[in-house]
Design a protein around this nucleic acid. Structure first.
Lengths: 182, 182
DNA sequence: AGCAGATAGTTGCGGGCGCAACCTTTCGCG
DNA sequence: CGCGAAAGGTTGCGCCCGCAACTATCTGCT
């Protein structure tokens, strides 16, 4: 199912082996990189999400949606665009927006030019919350993540992860929907 | 504990700013690194977990526990040790082991030297499954992750993530419990 | 106009996850 | 010896998440 890869390494590059008991394992660097990625992500997101929830009542996903709305041209976006930009399922976005709406942070109104679609619009209260939440959140990410990294390490991470997730860069100031092919 | 960083950025390096509307955002490299990490993790684990579930009926967490048991000295571990090693909550470990037990992949029996504790023991069926699952899983991780990386990038990731998650390296061949202070 | 197929959102459902409450056994200490 | 604190596990609960099924609308084609 994985699409086939660059020709020069098709032969294998299987950097894992099996020991005498038949248990597979990677080279140490590979294990550190992959398992470390999983572990690091788990630890950091757990802590950050807990903090965000405690201080602002927002999940990481909720903050992301709110932030994207805040950065959008007219403070609003279609749910589908939100889902595509954030990598969340549309159903999840729908429910998160529902919660944010109940909390009077966003308004939902039908798109005038397409009655199927909905504009999620962040209001002043939402804007205020997103600013406050981002301020503390960014500081936490800085302290728990970036402060442990050298400049060149950050550059490498940016290069590597930018390769996997091209939407990343757009996260700070989402332009609009429709950056996709369609 | 992380070795201290280059003197020139010790003061504090708050690498994020606010724009004229008061919205906070990072420098581009920071955004790419952090959001890219989140996004990449989301994509990769989603795909890998789906594959693992489809082919072997195991979640990523289930495989991890099984693999740790398989690598343990006598093919068994206490649930608390498993939880500590994997970064999962004890309650989650308890339930996952419960499922694995129902599937006849592990046995649960009270520790002879401490009636409170339980030994989760992987049996031959579990061992066979973990070998099969790891074989395909490792190949997938290789194809979807490592094959997109250069050697030096892998080294950087290993160094960086090893700094956050010291347990990582132990994942291939877990030694034993009790690495904690207590 | 009218129907088929695509598209936007909503919701029922089940699974993963951790926290907190709870039970049991062990340990420490008077 | 007995009592309280601590540790190992289990389970109830609620949150987050995506898939699949469903409704409503739009678009294209005849």
């Amino acid at each position: 199912m994985p699409e086939n890869l660059s020709p020069k390494l098709q032969s294998h590059s299987c950097s894992y082996e099996t020991d005498e008991q038949g248990l597979a394992h990677w080279t140490e660097a590979h294990a550190d990189a992959w398992i470390g990625l999983l572990e690091t992500h788990k630890q950091l997101t757990r802590a950050l999400d807990a903090e965000l929830t405690a201080q602002h009542g927002l999940s990481l996903s909720g903050l992301e949606l709110l932030a994207r709305l805040a950065a959008a041209d007219d403070r609003q976006m279609h749910l589908t665009a939100l889902a595509g930009a954030s990598g969340l399922s549309l159903s999840r976005v729908s429910r998160i927006i529902g919660v944010l709406e109940e909390r009077k942070l966003v308004d939902r109104h039908t798109c005038p030019s397409d009655a199927r679609a909905v504009h999620a619009h962040i209001n002043d209260a939402g804007l205020a919350l997103v600013r406050a939440a981002q301020a503390t959140h960014f500081a936490s990410v800085q302290a728990s993540f970036f402060d442990q990294l050298e400049e060149d390490e950050i550059a490498t991470l940016a290069r590597v992860f930018g390769r996997f997730a091209p939407r990343s860069a757009a996260a700070c100031n989402i332009g609009e929907a429709g950056d996709d092919a369609a």
